[in-house]
Design a protein around this nucleic acid. Sequence first.
DNA 1: AAGGCGGGGGA
DNA 2: TCCCCAGCCTT
Length: 352
Amino acid sequence: MNDWRQNLLNWYEANKRDLPWRNIKDPYKIWLSEVILQQTRVNQGWEYYLRFIKNYPTVSDLAAASEQDVLKLWQGLGYYSRARNLHAAAHTIVKEYEGKFPAKFESIRALKGVGDYTAGAIASIAFNLNYPAVDGNVMRVYSRLFGITTAIDSTNGKKQMNELAVELLPAKNPGTYNQAVMELGAMVCLPSNPQCESCPVQQACYAFLHKNMLDFPVKQGKTKVRNRYLNYIVIVQKDSILIRLRKSKDIWHGLHDFPVVETDRPITQAKFLKDKKWNEVVLLRNPVLKDVSEEYVHLLSHQKLFARFYLLEIVNGKMELPADSFWIKINDLENYAVPKLIDLYIRKKILK
DNA sequence: AAGGCGGGGGA
DNA sequence: TCCCCAGCCTT
């Protein structure tokens, strides 16, 4: 191999970052790191990876844990289906493969939460199998290198990108090559500030030679943000607090929060109190309003959350509870996985 | 093919 | 503000 790819590999050997999951062959740890890094920056996932390895050194340890404990360890990282799928896949590996990580691409790809990218990454890095690992970095690098104008978020674009990645994959050390392309995308071929002057493959790069790096990759793109107004009812009785498990397909599935009255437009504090809006969720006899929090604004990818917390104290315990809610001791709050937003409120107002 | 799913950081 | 991150799953 005597083309730009050799320059890339040389550059990679000389400049690669020292990451906790580098120079490791244990497929379990490779898998864990890849799932953590889905749509997540290295810096953000770093400590989570170390924590998971420490708490669950093997796939059997992970499978033996409760889902809530796994979610708790994942708390704050986002995209919680990753944690639920990780836990489910650990069970699969223990039951179907006797705790030994499957070594075939199709078997890896069939695990919950493992798509084409992750399966390719595990197969090539942990098992030295000849599969590409095409992530956002790779698509940005290749689209610039070859001047590809097919939108990368279209079915066609992904197909084209994958075929290209298969063609370019060297026969030897596919895992190293895959990581080299990704590393280039993460360190040099940046989205808005590409460092072309220090790029090992600039002389082969279409976008560099045409000075239009920022035109790539092409995307169809479209993100609309929905506003949601969450009026949380926080009910405390002595040393207990009422929480509930979030179940639906909505955000934070599997995590806990409080009974909530939700609207798609703002509702004033005064109206909320005057209309005793909490009765839409939980029927209370004589609640005592202890505190109304300021508005917490929480910006997510697809929705903007405006949350306010109404802290009520129940003196004479007559009420009808929402079906999914239950009492826990305030001191046990830390054992339940909660969204970032709820965690902020709890630390500030409940545990203070 | 399109939309949902978190949270953080950089421009 | 908007974009993007070592994507995946459901509809």
